[in-house]
Each structure stands twice: as C-alpha cells, then as structure tokens.
Nucleic acid binder design. Structure first.
Length: 578
RNA sequence: CGGGGUGUGGCGCAGUCGGUAGCGCGCGGCGUUUGGGACGCUGAGGUCGAAGGUUCGAGUCCUUUCACCCCGACCA
C-alpha cells in the first residue's frame, strides 16, 4: 500500500479527553474513528488487523472441529421470550418493532438461535457432538461504553456453541475451546491468565475468563503465585479462619454513642474490627429486603450476594426501608428484625461473641451469636477477596491485578435447549435435551487489548501475526531524488511480488515525519531507502522493537528481508510458548 | 442512572470587563529544504454543540437541552 493513497491519516495528538493508551494510539495511528458513543469505524489499517485476528480465530476454531456459519443480528422477540431472556435482560437489549408492529431485538449473543437450529437440525445422538461458530455483529446498549474499542456498544464477536449429548461431552467441548483460546491469545501476542468467573446472566454451571493483564482493565483478578489459583474478584474465594470454639457468652446491650461505622465502634470498644458483625442492607430486584451480615473487617461482594439470593440486581436500601424491617442504619444487626431475607457470611458463622448493632441509635449488643440470637435464611460465602488475603487452596498470600476480559468460555447446560426444544433421541429412543456450551471472543476488543500490552513512547509494537503490514518501507529523499525513489519503488514491487505485506511511505514528506509515522503505526520491520545508503549499496533494516538499525546489501535485499521476517515470526512463536 | 469534566475551523487550544472570532498544527498554491514531526510567501476553511431569554449588542450573562469523555453503578 502506498501511503500517499491510503484512506485515513495519522494524528499528531489524540483528542484531549481520550485517556487510555490503546484508545489514543488506535486513533493516532489511524486504525479507528469514532462515530458515536461506543460506535467506531475501522479504517483500512485497523480493519487489516481485525481481519488477521479473525483469521487466527478461524484457524483455531476449525482446528477443534468448529464449523463456521452465520446467524442474523435481528431476532424476533418471541425467541427471546421463550428463553426468558427477554424478561430477564435489562435495557442493554435493544428492542424495537418492525413495520408490521412485530417485536424484534438486536442480538446480544446467539444461544437462542443455535438452540432453535439444533431443535430442527439435530434429532439423533448420532449427530452429536457439534461445534458451530460465527463472527457476527452484536449490539449491546451498554450503560457506559469506554476506552475506545475496549468496551463498545456495537462490536464483532466470534461466538461458538457446542452441542453435546451429556455433561461428559460438554466437558470435552469445553476443554477443546480452552485449548483453542489459549492458542489464539498466545498467537496474538497477549500476556494473559485464565481465571474462574461469574456465570452472570448467561446462566450455566461453569465459566472461565481469559484475562489480559492491563492497568486499564475493567476487572480485578486475584492470583496465588504459590499454587496457581486465579480468579476474578467477583467470585474469588479466600482462605478463611478456622471456626472459633469459644463458648457463647450472654448477650448484653451497651451504650456506644457516635459509632455508626465499624471503625468508630472498634475504636470505642477497643476491640479489633474482626470482633464485630457488620450489617449491609439492599433491596433486591424482586422487592425483597436483603439483610447481609459479614464480619466487620471484611467487605461484601455483591456478585456473590446476588448469587446467594438469586436476585438479578441489588440496590442499597434507603433509611426508611431499613427502619421498616426493624433495623437501624449505623446500628443494625439481624437480631429482632422482621421481613428481611438474612444472608450471613461464613466469617460470622465461624466467629463467636461478636459485637453487633442493637437496632437503636447509640447502642450495640455484645456477644451476638448466629443460631442463638438470630437465624439466617442463607449462610454462605458473600465476602470479597482482596490482595493480601490467603489463597483458598494453599493459604499463601494472593496478589491482585487489573485485567481485560479477552475471551470467556461457558458451560451452559440445558437451559436454552430445554426452553427451545433442542432435544435428541438416544440409542434407546429416549429424548434428552442437548447440552450446550458457549464461547466468545471480541475481535475489536482483542485489537485494543494487544495495543494495551504492546506500545512504547513512539507508538504501537505489533506482533507480526496481526500487524497491519509486515514492513514499513520508507523512502528518504525529495521528490526530485529520482534515483532513490526509483530504487524504493523497485524494492516495493519486489517485496510485494515476494508476498511481503508492505506499507510504502512514498509521500513527499520529511524523513522525521515518515519515521515517526512508521513507529506510530508499529509494523514490526522498517526499511529505509536513502541516497546516503544507496551510495554504499546498502539498505537500512530496523526492527520496531530494536533501538539500532542493521544494514544489508541492496543485492539480495529481498531475501534478507524475508529471512528477517521469518526470524521475527519464529521468535514470536517461541515467546508465546508455541 | 449518580458524580465530575469538555463542547470555539480537520486536530490541539486562547478568547480578559458583553463591543468586528483568534493562535499553533494540519489542508491548497508557489518557492526553498530533505536521515527523526523544516522554512518563507500566499490562500481556503468557523450557524462558537442546540434552543430560548437578558441586552443597543452575547463565544462571553441566564434558563433549558443535546453530545462526547472520565469515575461509579451496570456488564457473556
């Protein structure tokens, strides 16, 4: 490609309000342009990267037996009513009516369609297992898009779906995807970790996320370097203290003025915060009052609490709602409350004689104990794991990292197949629901995620596997330096003929402009043709990642460049552990 | 949805006390220049996000509203 004719230009500066690095660089390098909130055009340069990413995805999906197909973005709402998601999913599902007044939706994902197709195409156990996938536009009216391509509203996602006879089959399809995803992300040059994750609105029994390390990530993951435990903070467990075997002491009310927070209370009574019980109040989506109780030194994890209560959403309760169940904000405890759904964290179950609120201002209760003084509707893990907490498996200290969710894999089970009648007959003629899994990767997000991990002060450092071009060819010399131009033109043609993808900077620009743009765009190899080097019969070759150039003879330059590209590709595979 | 911020030419910004809309970059033309974002001359390009109001007069003051960005909530 001759840069003099390339659609889309580089920018010297990114818009001032753009903050994260991948967003800045993808705008500056001319990969993307914004159209509206969470809506981006991919310019030719960015589109090349996305295509290469998608080709890698296709190769790896095909390698595990995936069959590519295509399903519509627009779905009849009835399909989503059948699965129940029409009712369950919030406003991120775009709903509209067509001209005949039929309810329609824009697909967030395609479980319903796959299940519907399975119901017509799959009849017999002989036809299973299957893996189908597609690369399709999805629309999610996100409450807040952010970070350029990291979180957008309209995006392309590779979705694959496995159809299996049973749980054992699903396990196999799931591990195949695990392997394919591992290879995809290695090949795109990502540093990542696989963590256990929340199943969220998808339902299902197990989910893992492929998380790429980045300070601009939206998720926090907890990692144990000692035993390899890694989990999204949303579902992360941690090593708990052993249950206390202290004898319960008589409950006693004490005056505790101005102790509306755990810290004030602990200071006033001169006890550690771990000897207190904290009450946190929510209103569930169903209208229930959710009364969460946790040891004073721990924090509630709302994802875990949602799972524990079965509530799709939780909002903090108001002072009036708290009073209505007989509790008191700042001095709350489950002792004596009515009409609340009480969820107690394991930490409180395993402790004895905690200090809890007396449900009246200025008073607390000493020696409160679960079972004797109040009952719980649920006792489970609702505590948030933090950096420094012990690993749940080996009890070594865990550390926290921010990360971007690059992909995830899900065991769905039979939720969708049952709802949409996707069943098969086994060898005995018995009908069973197909067991499903679903697996997603956003190609645009992956582009942004790779940039997040590969850049320097000059610009992007693409891995050759997904770089827009293999080579940036820079002609140094004015328009009237016909000899240099002729040599650069000839090299451009020769490289193209040799199958090299070349971005040829043939613009009438000063060398500094060209070098800076080449660095910004970040192709892995830069070749400079100049009269200075031509006089010595040489070409300059510089890796984007190197600080100093090398020189090769003009004779055999194409071979030398091909060899260097091979070396780069080989080194990347080694670095990726492939 | 809550909090914060920003809207002035393609990009980055200035615009004081309300008085003829400016600067740098970029863009067109001409000339010089050519190994890390050159220089001179000369041009083109703006309903100052929108609407309403105050005023003799509004980029500037008031009201409303829209868009975008950031934090949070939310989120396969």
């Amino acid at each position: 490609m001759r840069m003099s004719h390339m659609f889309g230009r580089t920018l010297r500066a990114a818009p001032a309000d753009v903050e994260i690095i991948s967003h800045q660089l993808s705008l500056r390098a001319g990969l993307i342009r914004p159209l509206g909130a969470g809506l981006f055009s991919l310019l030719p340069l960015g589109w090349r990267v996305v295509n290469k990413i998608e080709d890698i995805i296709r190769e790896e999906m095909d390698a595990i037996g995936g069959q590519e197909m295509m399903m519509p973005v627009v779905h009849p709402a009835d399909l989503w009513r059948q699965s129940g998601r029409y009712q369950v999913v919030g406003p991120e599902l775009a709903r509209w009516k067509d001209r005949s007044d039929r309810d329609m939706v824009l697909a967030l994902t395609h479980e319903e369609v796959v299940a519907q197709l399975a119901s017509t195409e799959i009849n017999s156990y002989r036809q299973l297992p299957q893996i189908v996938y597609h690369l399709q536009t999805k629309f999610r009216d996100e409450p807040r898009s952010r970070g350029g391509l990291i979180r957008v509203r309209e995006f392309t996602m590779k979705d694959s779906y496995s159809l299996d006879l049973d749980e054992a089959g699903l396990e196999e399809s799931y591990s195949k995807h695990w392997i394919a995803y591992d290879r995809i992300f290695r090949r795109t040059g990502l540093r990542f970790i696989v963590v256990t994750a929340d199943v969220g609105m998808m339902g299902g029994s197990k989910s893992e996320e492929f998380m790429a390390f980045s300070p601009n990530g939206e998720d926090t993951i907890l990692i144990c370097d000692s035993c390899g435990y890694a989990s999204n903070q949303e579902v992360a467990r941690f090593g708990r203290d052993a249950a206390s075997d202290d004898a319960p002491l008589p409950m006693e009310e004490v005056e505790t003025p101005n102790t509306t927070t755990i810290q004030l209370l602990a200071d006033y009574l001169k006890i550690p915060t771990s000897k207190t019980a904290k009450a946190v109040f929510y209103m569930g989506e169903s209208g229930r009052f959710i009364f969460a109780v946790i040891r004073g030194d721990l924090e509630i994890n709302e994802t875990k609490l949602r799972t524990a209560t079965g509530e799709g959403g939780l909002v903090p309760a108001t002072v009036e709602q708290i009073k209505a169940v007989g509790a008191e904000a700042g001095y709350g405890s489950p002792v004596g409350v009515k009409g609340a759904f009480i969820v107690v964290d394991e930490s409180v179950r395993d402790a004895r004689n905690l200090v809890a609120g007396a449900n009246k201002p200025g008073y607390h209760l000493l020696n409160v104990n679960l079972g004797r003084d109040y009952q719980a509707d649920v006792v489970t893990d609702i505590a948030s794991a933090q950096a420094g907490y012990p690993c749940p498996d080996c009890r070594e200290s865990m550390r926290a990292e921010r990360a971007i969710e690059a992909g995830n894999i899900f065991k769905l089970g039979t939720r969708y197949s049952e709802a949409l009648g996707a069943t098969y007959l086994d060898a005995e003629g018995q009908e069973h629901p197909v067991v499903m899994g679903s697996y997603g990767i956003g190609s645009g997000r992956l582009l942004a995620t790779v940039i997040e991990q590969r850049y320097d002060d000059k610009g992007i450092l693409w891995p050759i596997a997904i770089a827009p071009y293999h080579v940036s060819l820079v002609a140094i010399g004015s328009a009237d330096d016909t000899e240099t131009i002729a040599q650069a033109d000839a090299l451009y043609e020769a490289l193209k003929a040799a199958g090299v993808e070349v971005l040829y900077d043939d613009r009438d620009e000063r060398p500094g402009v060209k070098f800076n743009d080449a660095d910004l765009i970040g192709n892995p190899l830069r070749i400079a043709v100049s009269s200075r080097n031509l006089a010595k019969g040489q070409l300059e070759i510089k890796r984007r990642s190197a600080s100093e150039p090398e020189f090769v003879s003009m004779d055999g330059a194409v071979e030398a460049i091909l060899a260097e590209l091979d070396v780069i590709a080989a080194e990347e595979l080694v670095a990726a552990g492939l």
